[in-house]
Amino acid sequence: MSPLGFDPAAAPRGVSRAVLPDGRPVVVKRDVGAAAEAAGLRWLRVPGGPAVPEVLAAEADWLVEAEVPAGTPTRAAAEGFGRRLAALHAAGAPACGSPPPGGPVDARIGGTAMRNEPGPTWPAWFVEHRIRPYLHAVPDPGPVEEVCTRIEELAGPPEPPARLHGDLWSGNVLWSPSGVWLIDPAAHGGHRETDLAMLALFGLPHLDTVLAAYDEVAPLADGRAARVPLHQLFPLLVHAVLFGGGYAHQAVEAARQALRAR
C-alpha cells in the first residue's frame, strides 16, 4: 500500500478528495497538466510569499496536495496577501516564459495548451507565446494584431522577470482562517502586472486593499491602470479558445482599450 493510504492513479479523472491514514484531508488531481502544476506549486513556495498547498506526491498525470481549510475574505487577509504577492513576484525568474524547475515547456492553463518558452524581452515574448497562438479564436483579429505591432510602445517600462502564479483569477485565491492561499497555478516567468490584471478580470474581494498593500511594498510603474486591458488580453484569449462566444468579443475590446490608452 502507498504511504498515502490509496493509489492516486486510480482516483477519478479531475479533482477529488481523500483522507490520509493520519487523518489529514488532501486533494487529488488526475490531469495531463499535473506535472506542470506540481512543479509550479513547489516554485511558488518562497519566503514571505503567499501560502501554497504542500505537494505530498506527484507523477506525470496526477498529484496529491494538502487541502486548504475554508475561510472568509477579510481586509486584513487582503492586505497580507498584497504584501506576500509582491514578495512572490520579487523572487524572480530566469527569463520571461521560463518554466518552474522540473516543469515542462508544454504546460497547461485551464484546459488548453500554454508554452513556457523563454524569451529575451517581455513584449516580444508576450506576442509570440501569449497572443498569437490563440488568435484563431477571435473573429475580428485586427485590433489584436495591432496590439502585436505596437507592443513595444504599449508595454510600459521594462522590468525584470517576475515569478508569476500565471492563472491568478479569483477562483484560485482561497481565503482560509490563516489568510490567503494560492492554488492551481500555471506558473512561469513574466510581467508582474499580468497577475495583478488577472485578479481584476473576474473580481476579487477587497481587491483595492490587495493592490494598495502591494504598491506599498513594490511600487508599480506609472500608467499601470491603462495597461490592465493589455495584460488581460491573454486570459481572455484563453477563455475564447475554451468557451468562445462572449470571451472572443471581450478579447477584441480589451485590445481596443489597450490601443486607446496610448
Rank of each mutant, 00 (worst) to 15 (best):
L211N: 04
P219Y: 05
T209G: 08
R224F: 15
A221R: 05
G203N: 12
A197E: 02
H231F: 15
L204F: 12
L174F: 02
D215W: 04
L233W: 05
L196Q: 02
L196D: 00
P177L: 06
H206F: 13
L174W: 04
L199T: 15
V173T: 05
R224N: 10
L230K: 00
S170L: 11
V180P: 14
A197Y: 01
L199N: 07
H231T: 10
A221T: 10
T209M: 05
L237C: 09
V210T: 02
V217Y: 04
S170K: 15
R192Y: 04
A218I: 04
D195K: 01
L233V: 13
L220H: 02
Q232F: 06
F202E: 13
P229G: 07
E216T: 06
L211A: 11
H206N: 09
A200Y: 12
L233K: 01
M198N: 01
P219K: 09
L237G: 09
L230G: 00
L207K: 14
P235G: 03
A213Y: 04
V173P: 03
T194R: 14
N172M: 11
L201P: 01
A221V: 08
T209S: 14
V180W: 14
L199R: 04
E216D: 05
E193T: 11
P205D: 08
V210L: 09
P185C: 10
G223C: 10
A225F: 07
W181L: 03
P219F: 01
E193F: 03
G223S: 03
L207E: 14
I183H: 01
